[in-house]
Amino acid sequence: MKVSIKVNGQNYTRDIEERTLLVHFLREQAGLTGTHIGCETSLCGACTVLLNGNAVKSCTVLAASADGTEVTTVEGLAKGNELHPIQEGFWEKHGLQCGFCTPGFLMATVQLLERNPNPTEDEIRHGLEGNYCRCTGYHNIVKAVQFAAAKMRGEAIAAD
């Protein structure tokens, strides 16, 4: 079947099998491999993207269901060489080690901060419950999100 999905502002029309998952469409049809596949069982959140503005696990959405939608992946966050404040937060606060989970955390954080620009630590941990990191222990991820939130609110950020 033919499916058209606008990814990071660019239209991708592809002939695919009905059973193609959105994550495979993004990686194999659109060639955007920033979206990772961790568990394939809807649990780890590495495959998180924004579907019409909602953070979803793209391993648990059919590409067919996403026909005609707009998707934002991690490749759509930075503006040229300028990192998105959330990417900057993960960079500044060492919110990653191997980086495998990071694209998913970044995209889930976009949604978290859009809904709650000034989250408490508890709210950050609750908001990112759908994302697993096997390296960091989450501590620095929380700091990274706090950094990004402050920057996006336009506040001065204290150095470490």
Binding site: S42, G45, T48, N54, A55, V56, K57, T60, V61, A108, Q111, L112, G127, L128, E129, G130, N131
Partner: peptide, 9 residues
């Protein structure tokens, strides 16, 4: 229920 992504879908 579940997590933020699950509750979106």
């Amino acid at each position: 229920v579940g997590d933020m992504q699950v509750r979106n879908m």
